[in-house]
Amino acid sequence: MNGYLMTQREIAAFEQHLRGEERSAGTIEKYLRDVNAFARWMEGRAVAREDAARWKAHLLDHGYAPVTINSMLAALNGFFRFAGWEGYRVKFLKVQRRMFREASRELSRGDYGRLLDTARERGQERLALLMEAIGGTGVRVSEVRYLTVEAALAGRAEVSLKGKIRVILLPEKLCRKLLKYAKKQKIASGEIFLTGSGKGLSRRQIWAEMKRLCRHAGVEPSKVFPHNLRHLFAATFYRACRDIAHLADVLGHSCIETTRIYLLATGAEQREQIDRLGLIR
């Protein structure tokens, strides 16, 4: 038989490999979703060397964005590398670096305010405080579990991910709000943002609650997802300090190029900057 069969046993082993590398829960979830999508597309057939390239073409034909396709290929290549399937990895699409961010995905401070106000009006205190915590500190959604009673008391949270430890300073006003909420919920220690059964909120739960809220707040759903709160924090912080290296440290980025992506202007902002050059007579 030519090629290899992708089995659920191998995919499960890949998951354990990712956990051993201390990948974030979100990364593991995405990699497994993309690898399983490819496995379903193969419909039980043995994987030949050209199949990954065929899948790339299939995704393009079905309207997937190039950046999305490359992220899916990264997951698949990671599986091939883990499985030892030499020569099966596929090249990424060549994508020119984007110089501006789409306005349809730009969460403004006005949008942010409407989301917070609407959540409170609807009695969704936990969601309002959670969005404020992410927006006010820039933590990743996977780092919300480090916002504990102890962290609020100390005014700082120690985040340990991928073998790295960084300290997140918590604003005094946020600490007071967190402790007040924890006392109301009878949470004496540990994580503050919990489900009714006492478990930590998952990325999927947070995402779903925000998506439902945006309809009531009159904010475009394309702008409303947890990571956009982190982008809002980054843009606001940079406007205040104008120090990208400092911002990279605050966000926990090891590469300033990653931080730069957070600071892209919208297309409308960039067009205004070009118009002000006055070079069209």
Results as ranks from 00 to 15, higher is better:
2 N>E: 15
6 M>N: 02
6 M>W: 11
9 R>M: 06
10 E>I: 00
11 I>C: 06
12 A>V: 02
16 Q>W: 07
17 H>D: 12
19 R>T: 01
21 E>T: 05
22 E>V: 08
25 A>I: 08
29 E>F: 05
31 Y>S: 01
32 L>F: 04
33 R>P: 01
38 F>M: 07
42 M>T: 07
48 A>P: 00
49 R>E: 14
52 A>N: 01
54 R>Y: 03
65 A>N: 01
68 T>N: 04
73 L>Q: 06
78 G>D: 11
89 R>P: 00
95 V>D: 09
96 Q>A: 15
98 R>C: 02
101 R>D: 03
101 R>P: 01
104 S>W: 06
107 L>S: 04
121 E>I: 02
142 S>L: 02
143 E>A: 12
154 A>T: 12
163 G>D: 13
163 G>P: 10
167 V>F: 08
182 A>D: 03
183 K>H: 13
187 I>K: 09
192 I>Q: 11
196 G>W: 02
196 G>N: 12
206 I>T: 10
209 E>T: 10
214 C>D: 09
215 R>L: 13
216 H>I: 04
220 E>N: 14
230 R>Y: 03
235 A>L: 12
241 C>H: 15
251 L>S: 12
251 L>E: 08
252 G>L: 11
256 I>C: 07
256 I>H: 02
262 Y>N: 05
269 E>Q: 15
271 R>E: 15
273 Q>G: 14
278 G>R: 02
278 G>M: 11
